[in-house]
Design a protein around this nucleic acid. Structure first.
Lengths: 203, 203
DNA sequence: GTCTATAACCTGATAGAC
DNA sequence: GTCTATCAGGTTATAGAC
């Protein structure tokens, strides 16, 4: 629980303890399923202190959510924008970057996607990040291939192949279809398979 | 709102009015985000009446959830099990069946997947539906192809290609990447594209 | 900064009249 | 079956002592 940037003592500040607890609880239970008491308890501090540092449950949530969206975007945007890499290199990088992030945080995609669906989260609507993606090096390279597949299709498909297993994990494991171990090994295989599949789709 | 099985008067029974309202509100807000008062208001009846017909919020939710999971399973299981169709036919059928269901109910997948993640929904763990899928005609046909791809990979990928766009829709539209119209047209295209892609992946 | 105590409000569920 | 009124318990947020 106590995450340290380096070795040694360096106890987390109270503020960071609360935020770390909030990350954990919000991700597991969502906004409306989380009680501020849960966060306080998880952080080992008092409920009043949570409101002292963050004004409200909503503001604390917004900070966590903003951070998580940033994590997901930083995983993909720089790769898409890089003018010095080939299309194939970008695909491999996106896959490996995402698997690195999601393997440590299986719940991240479904948490973000679902909360974004329930509330209309303001800071997504504000940044025109969607339109920016349409003009990245990645999308241009796709167009230049003149493959008979819309670049948006291609991107959606790749993200689906990467992210969906994590979203579906609860159904797959709880229904007895695959074990936790089998899931892990499938994920590892996919890191190699998805780039091959995307190549096949392009032709 | 008033859904009728045939033309003519046939007003919904109170019980069905409540259930219909519950479907709508639960799907939009999830279990913990929904207040029973919201459902009562949506149904145009009183809060007390909700508890008269269904014993509790949880029981009403369970009925809705069970129904939705059934919808998703009935869309796919019979197709997977059918011994009289080819692999290619099954793929096309799954895709078109799912698009038919999901086009009318975009929120269905993320609702089910997320609630299943938060709570451990009992009736999924009980039915060994996961293991059953592994022994369907579909999975056997995949093995017989001796393609160098695990059938579970193949199924996960196909479901990802079908379902992920609906799960990601809030991000895609709210971020300004695509409009609602563009989303619809992309979905229609995918019904033809996904079977082709799956064929490409198989080789 | 951190705590205890509590205010102010909300929510699920029920009692009881009709 | 359906309603109004209300209870009992939980939840966010704050007041105030230390």
């Amino acid at each position: 629980m106590a995450r340290r940037k380096k070795a040694g003592p360096d106890p987390l500040s109270t503020e960071e303890k609360i935020k770390e607890a909030a990350r954990k609880v919000f991700l597991r239970k969502g906004f409306s399923g989380t009680r501020t008491r849960d966060i306080a308890e998880e952080a080992g501090i008092n409920l009043a202190l949570l409101n002292y540092y963050f004004r409200s449950k909503q503001k604390l949530f917004d900070e966590v959510m903003k951070e998580k969206i940033q994590t997901l975007l930083k995983t993909i945007i720089p790769v898409l924008q890089d003018n010095s890499t080939t299309l194939e290199e970008k695909i491999k990088l996106m896959v490996s970057n995402y698997f690195k992030v999601l393997s440590k945080n299986n719940d991240l995609p479904i948490f973000v996607l679902n909360e974004l669906r329930k509330n209309n989260i303001s800071f997504i609507s504000n940044l025109p990040v969607g339109k920016a993606i349409l003009q990245t090096s990645f999308m241009l390279q796709l167009k230049q291939r003149k493959a008979n597949v819309d670049p948006v299709h291609f991107l959606m498909s790749m993200l689906g192949l990467i992210i969906f297993p994590f979203v579906a994990k609860p159904i797959l494991t709880q229904s007895g279809m695959i074990s936790e171990r089998k899931f892990q090994s499938l994920i590892e295989e996919r890191e190699l398979l998805i780039p091959l599949w995307m190549k096949a789709i392009l032709k």
